[in-house]
């Protein structure tokens, strides 16, 4: 659905925002770009949605080249930008209809669709209220609805939950999942929230300093670290290392102070198998714990620093974003 090859953007001939990145987004998946602020996520999106021209490399969306066939790309995609771009002085309904006009969707179809989308994001009751009266979560939902007015095949979400509180964030995730299911679209999103990438994305690309460091599903990335660790103790005084070793998915077993540290792939599935195997041989498990590596550890492993170092207060994020905008606008 989306193909990027050596995609590069250099601002003002010196600031390399995106540095030869290559990736592929498959049909129907939610693909996430994970990285700290300033890693090049928004610049990448802007190139894919034809707002910025790549300095080097190529990209295509639905087979259309983003430079040569930009108009075809624009017709087929939906964009939900990082900022709240809806016009404050207009109502929610007027905003959606404005989008419909820009896409040239026939009036009658557009009216029906606008109401349907407002229903989907639960803004029907507020559709005739001016956007300036909307809360952050409502604005974000309105942006989602606007981005869907042309029934896009691919939807681009730039930091869909930036600046939202935890509850609203979870609600927005729910909408995004529903969109994918009901409108069967491919979603390309950026985020710097690990949790968001973990729960929402089918595959993640970790991007830092304009380069893609690693691509994979959240599970694969975590497994790449060597998998989950299961800690086990048995009442009996015998060595059960060999029994555990024979269980499927077990990578290695280490015994220390009476505890067995078992490195496994897919811990949740393997754990019951180990307990079962031990019970069959007549052993009783007295202690058990399962530690899954988090994306944070993955991130740490690949970038050498924790992503939360990059997160700041909302105010800091706003300031950083402003600086970035200035840099981008050159």
């Amino acid at each position: 659905m989306i193909k990027a090859e050596n995609l590069t953007k250099v601002f003002n001939r010196s600031l390399v925002a995106v540095d030869h990145i290559t990736f592929n987004v498959r049909e129907g998946e939610i693909f996430g770009f994970l990285g700290p602020n300033g890693a090049g996520k928004t610049t990448t999106i802007n190139m894919l949605i034809t707002v910025l021209k790549p300095t080097e490399g190529t990209a295509s969306v639905l087979g259309f080249d983003v430079v040569r066939q930009s108009n075809e790309v624009r017709k087929a995609i939906g964009v939900v930008p990082q900022e709240f771009t809806a016009d404050e002085d207009l109502t929610g309904y007027e905003n959606i209809m404005l989008c419909a006009d820009l896409y040239g969707i026939p009036r009658e179809i557009a009216k029906k669709r606008a109401l349907e989308l407002l229903e989907l994001v639960e803004l029907t009751n507020f559709k005739d209220k001016r956007v300036e009266t909307y809360s952050g979560g409502m604005r974000r939902r309105l942006e989602l609805a606007c981005g869907l007015i042309n029934y896009p095949k691919v939807l681009f979400l730039d930091e869909p939950t930036l600046g939202l509180d935890v509850q609203t964030r979870i609600a927005v995730w729910e909408y995004i999942r529903r969109l994918r299911k009901e409108y069967d679209i491919t979603i390309f999103m950026t985020t710097h929230y690990l949790e968001e990438a973990d729960t929402l994305c089918d595959r993640i690309a970790i991007i830092d300093h304009g380069k893609i460091i690693v691509i994979g599903s959240p599970g694969e990335l975590k497994d790449g670290l060597g998998g989950d660790v299961i800690t086990i103790a048995v009442r009996e005084n015998a060595d059960v290392t060999s029994i555990i070793q024979e269980v499927e998915n077990v990578k290695n077993v280490r015994k220390e102070n009476g505890l067995y540290y078992v490195k496994v792939v897919e811990g949740e599935v393997t754990a019951p198998l180990i307990i079962e195997a031990l019970r069959k041989k007549g052993y009783t498990v007295t202690r058990f714990s399962l530690t899954e590596p988090t994306l944070n550890e993955v991130y740490l492993e690949y970038t050498g620093r924790a992503i939360r170092d990059m997160e700041g207060s909302n105010a800091e994020i706003m300031i950083q974003r402003l600086h970035l905008r200035r840099a981008r606008n050159g």
Partner: peptide, 28 residues
């Protein structure tokens, strides 16, 4: 219906939609 992309962007409609937005803001 969802499979059909029915965008027919028109210059006049786009121009008028954007102008109307500004005028609405102004009158508001």
């Amino acid at each position: 219906m969802k499979a059909v992309n029915d965008c027919q962007p028109s210059f006049v409609r786009g121009l008028w939609a954007l102008t109307r937005r500004e005028l609405k803001k102004w009158l508001n």
